[in-house]
């Protein structure tokens, strides 16, 4: 089974040379640490930056340089700054190649619920709805089950939706799944030490398993 770093590490393998990538808050942010040095990748921050770099050294924090999670960061050589309208314009116009975000629930047909728990957590959707409505490549990084042990890969989302028919791939601590256009979660890889049986037990939605499922190599 993978921990959060493991999930991030596996997702980083999906990033291709020359990609512009948007990383959501939480586990997705960790993906930045595992992007291979041999490839060129530019990270887009929805608050108006391309070329997001690592956290600054202590003492070098700049209040005017933050990421979408409101953390202090740095800018890499070749960075560009733009306003919020342009930021979401480039997202909507599909210039961003890959979006990685967390979720509370994903359904068999790729619906995603990630922003609201009615009566309990109503903080707002931020940029998530824009990202999932426009991106062609969406990978969800999340735990396979919630705190109550219930599957987060469902036939249908029960929580308020962020978007419909949009998630393409999911990486959880148990494995890697494709969301098929015709519906269903296709198991691609098992996490180290995890069996197909474990995954079946934890998944409420339709699971498609074809042939021998390899163990993840990270």
């Amino acid at each position: 089974m993978l921990d959060k770093e493991g999930i991030a590490k596996r997702i980083a393998k999906e990033i291709k040379d020359g990609y512009y990538v948007n990383l959501g808050i939480g586990i997705p942010t960790l993906v930045a640490n595992y992007i291979p040095h041999e490839i060129d990748v530019v990270l887009q921050s929805e608050n108006g930056m391309l070329g997001m770099g690592p956290f600054p050294f202590e003492g070098e924090e700049d209040a005017d340089v933050i990421n979408a999670g409101k953390q202090t960061i740095t800018m890499l050589p070749g960075s560009a700054i733009f306003d919020s309208a342009m930021s979401f314009g480039m997202i909507r116009a599909k210039k961003v190649n890959l979006t990685i975000l967390g979720a509370m629930e994903v359904s068999e047909n790729g619906d995603i619920a990630s922003w609201k728990i009615p009566g309990k957590m109503v903080k707002g959707m931020g940029g998530a709805m824009d990202l999932v409505a426009s991106a062609e490549n969406i990978i969800v990084a999340m735990q396979h089950t919630n705190k109550a042990g219930e599957s987060k890969l469902l036939p249908k989302c029960m929580l308020p939706l962020t978007g419909i028919n949009c998630v393409k791939k999911i990486v959880t601590e148990l494995g890697v799944f494709d969301v098929l256009p015709e519906g269903g979660f296709k198991l691609l890889e098992r996490a180290p030490g995890v069996s197909v049986k474990d995954i079946k037990k934890a998944t409420a939605g339709k699971l498609i398993i074809e042939g021998e499922i390899p163990e993840m190599i990270i």
């Binding site: 929805e46 306003d83 919020s84 309208a85 930021s87 979401f88 314009g89 997202i91 909507r92 009566g119 109503v122 707002g124 959707m125 931020g126 940029g127 998530a128 709805m129 824009d130």
Partner: peptide, 19 residues
């Protein structure tokens, strides 16, 4: 204030807000 109904809130997707 939101959960108690004192404050009216319209939550708008960030890109929609900017646009």
């Amino acid at each position: 204030q939101l959960l108690s109904g004192e404050l009216e809130v319209e939550l708008v997707p960030q890109g929609t807000l900017a646009t």
